[in-house]
Write a protein that binds this DNA or RNA. Sequence first.
DNA 1: ATAATTTCTTGATCTACATCAATGTGCAGA
DNA 2: TCTGCACATTGATGTAGATCAAGAAATTAT
Lengths: 195, 195
Amino acid sequence: MYPEFKNFHQYFTEKALVAQKDFEKLLPYFSVEKYPKGHTLLSKGGVNKHIYFVEEGLLRFYTKDENGKEFILHFAPENWWLTDRNNLCSNEPSEFFIDAYEETSVVLLNHDFIEKATEISHEFRTFHEHILQRHIKQLYRRINLLISTPAKECYIEFLKTYPNITQRVPQWMIASYLGITPEAVSRIRKELASK
Amino acid sequence: MYPEFKNFHQYFTEKALVAQKDFEKLLPYFSVEKYPKGHTLLSKGGVNKHIYFVEEGLLRFYTKDENGKEFILHFAPENWWLTDRNNLCSNEPSEFFIDAYEETSVVLLNHDFIEKATEISHEFRTFHEHILQRHIKQLYRRINLLISTPAKECYIEFLKTYPNITQRVPQWMIASYLGITPEAVSRIRKELASK
DNA sequence: ATAATTTCTTGATCTACATCAATGTGCAGA
DNA sequence: TCTGCACATTGATGTAGATCAAGAAATTAT
């Protein structure tokens, strides 16, 4: 069923507990897109009101400093959400970049979808609120890690948050996510391996 | 008007653009509390489903590590919101602490208030969504700062976020918020003063 | 006011991680 | 298969900020 958005469907019915009949009502309100490796979905200064559900592949959300150095705020592999939430409500230009690191297919939603879905399905409404709250909590956890913990433990936490992503992205992206250098990641790994 | 929650009222009518008649309908749905300096509103392991609007005073939101060292995630002076959002939806015990660093009076809301307010006032609904999104954006900015920027600039950004808080809290709390030591804050200040 | 406690400053050393540089490794294209 | 090129490793050295320690200043308690 729904080969193009199997994960999305499964997520809605099994995680968000949205009834199949409600899901069917929502079919007209979203679309599926496929992006090649390296495709840019949002650049600094742009406006992008989409909410992405990653069906397959890997997106990354990041900033660049004056020298073009990238800082990754968030990876989004299969079954993750990604959006520049600021953009949703306002028309302010974004400070962030989003691009596809692998060939990626996404389910494309916008604010109307959320409105419609919360109207149709009480389950979705509750679930949507829940994921927003959980997202905020995760961000606080990450801040807490960054201000309280040395790089080695941040790396260990990273592995827990994104199991198997290590094999899919170059080391400098992990370093960029952790706020350290690729060399430091290499040494941390060496040390962890020796145990 | 409303001497006990003047700021709250002003915030609702002027910032959230809630009509006076709608505000009046909400009067039965919240209460005002006053806490003495040092009062603990939430401890790790506890559950606390309140949303606080700080009418007067100063709350802080923080964690502690195994050695009891505190890490401040968030200050909330007048006109700020504070809540352990995870707690709102679930009954999981909290990982965080909240306490009053000054004598503080808060407007106490809970999830029902938000439901009611979004039902009564479309303006509030939009505004509430907006502040959630903005909150997430702020958290990403902070993460971005932490992974990309040396302590001095983090300190400068802190001053922008919380003008005048410097005079109200000890230096170690600022250090704790920035993830550095009080000595480092002292040196950063000295350096900034010499310009 | 005096004592006690907390906070702030400053200096001396230490350490985690950065930077720079060289070498090694695996994969993509001719 | 050889040639690049991006990526990973390792070593040598530098530096921001930590830690430790002592004294000054400010606050709070007696």
